[in-house]
């Protein structure tokens, strides 16, 4: 099993790249016109999970971006998925 340093040597630049890309995405959305969107709010709500102490942050983010209702729906409004659950 690789050490922390070995993993950082392997993957730090990639993780840094992804973090900066996320920061730039947030800046970009803020800079552009238009109404608030539930997807942006869902992303913002998930970001604090990255700084939590839990050992399963990836699961935490996935849970935060999931539909938590239980019953099958009568009819789908569309075929694909949006990446975050629509409120209501």
């Amino acid at each position: 099993m690789p050490t922390k340093k070995e993993l950082l040597d392997l993957q730090f630049i990639e993780a840094r790249h992804k973090l900066i890309d996320l920061a730039a995405f947030l800046d970009r959305i803020d800079r552009h016109p238009g109404a608030d969107d539930f997807r942006y709010a869902a992303l913002q709500a998930a970001i604090p999970i990255l700084l939590s102490e839990r050992p399963d942050r990836a699961r935490g983010v996935l849970d935060a971006l999931s539909d938590h209702s239980h019953e099958p729906i009568p009819k789908a409004a569309f075929q694909g998925a949006l990446g975050a659950a629509q409120p209501g």
Binding site: L65, D67, H68, H70, A81, G83
Partner: peptide
């Protein structure tokens, strides 16, 4: 299993 926001619910169902 469904993708993205639908996966958790779909897997449970």
């Amino acid at each position: 299993t469904p993708h993205l926001e639908d996966k958790l619910k779909g897997t449970r169902l």
